[in-house]
Simulated assay, not measured.
Amino acid sequence: MNADGQQTPSWYDDEAGPVVRPYAMTRGRTTSRGQHRLDLIAVVVTEPGTGDLARETALSPEHVDIVDLCRGTPQSVAELSSGLDLPIGVVRVLIGDLVDQEMVHVTRPVPPAELPDESILRDVINGLRAL
């Protein structure tokens, strides 16, 4: 309320809850210490037995959420960003922290240049049919 007793408009609504700036979650960092390259389609997999360990250590709630989301099913970086409703840059830093602590590992997709050529696959199929 202002001095006249009228309510001043706020820039967020009551259902928004507490507002935390993304840089506060990463302590101002824009990259992780290990400089892990995390594509949007890189898949994050939780290491066995890290669920309880994540809760016992001094991890942020966002770190624990990432471990929880990846425990049942491996998730891509994009899926984690969407599921946590956090910017991609923040999620990349948080995943990098978890990789450094060996709580998750990241599998990267095979680059298109390393995939087998379609003509080779057709030759293999034709060869199998000929048998």
Score class of each variant (00 low, 15 high):
Leu59Thr: 07
Leu128Asp: 04
Ser76Lys: 10
Arg21Trp: 12
Leu84Val: 04
Thr73Asp: 07
Thr26Arg: 01
Arg33Glu: 10
Leu80Thr: 00
Asp97Leu: 06
Met103Ala: 13
Glu47Lys: 11
Arg55Trp: 13
Arg37Ser: 15
Ala78Glu: 15
Leu86Val: 07
Asp100Arg: 12
Asp14Leu: 11
Gln101Ile: 09
Ile66Asn: 00
Leu80Asn: 01
Leu53Ile: 09
Asp97Met: 06
Asp97Ser: 12
Leu80Val: 02
Gly51Asp: 08
Ala42Arg: 03
Leu94Ala: 02
Asp68Ser: 11
Arg122Asn: 06
Asp123Ala: 12
Ala130Ile: 09
Glu47Met: 10
Gln35Trp: 05
Gln35Glu: 10
Gly127Val: 00
Glu56Asn: 14
Ser10Cys: 06
Gln35Tyr: 12
Thr73Met: 11
Thr46Ile: 01
Met25Leu: 15
Val43Gln: 09
Ala42Asn: 08
Thr46Phe: 01
Cys70Thr: 11
Thr8Ala: 12
Ile95Trp: 01
Thr46Glu: 01
Ile41Ala: 10
Leu40Pro: 06
Ala58Glu: 15
Leu86Glu: 02
Ile95Met: 02
Gly5Trp: 02
Asp65Ala: 15
Asp4Ala: 08
Glu15Ala: 10
Thr107Asn: 10
Ile95Asn: 01
Asn2Pro: 02
Gln101Phe: 08
Val77Glu: 05
Tyr12Gly: 04
Ile66Ser: 00
Ser76Gln: 07
Asp117Met: 07
Asn126Arg: 14
Pro111Thr: 13
Ile88Gln: 07
Ile66Trp: 00
Gly49His: 07
Val106Arg: 00
Gly127His: 05
Glu47Gly: 02
Val19Gln: 14
Ile88Cys: 02
Gln75Gly: 02
Leu40Ile: 03
Asp13Thr: 13
Arg29Met: 09
Leu38Tyr: 01
Glu102Pro: 03
Pro112Gly: 06
Ile120Ser: 09
Val106Ile: 08
Pro112Asn: 13
Pro61Cys: 08
Ile41Arg: 15
Val93Pro: 00
Val44Met: 00
Leu131Glu: 13
Tyr23Val: 11
Ala54Phe: 11
Pro112Ser: 13
Leu94Tyr: 00
Pro109Phe: 03
Ser32Gly: 13
Ala130Cys: 10
Leu98Val: 04
Ala113Val: 11
Glu15Gly: 06
Leu131Ile: 06
Arg71Lys: 15
Thr57Lys: 15
Pro48Phe: 09
Asp13His: 08
Asp117Arg: 12
Leu53Asn: 04
Thr73Leu: 12
Arg92Met: 03
Glu47Pro: 01
Ser119Tyr: 12
Leu84Trp: 02
Leu80Pro: 00
Val106Gln: 02
Leu115His: 13
Arg21Asn: 14
His36Glu: 03
Leu80Cys: 04
Leu53Tyr: 10
Glu15Thr: 11
Val124Asn: 01
Leu86Ile: 04
Val104Leu: 03
Leu69Ala: 14
Ile120Lys: 06
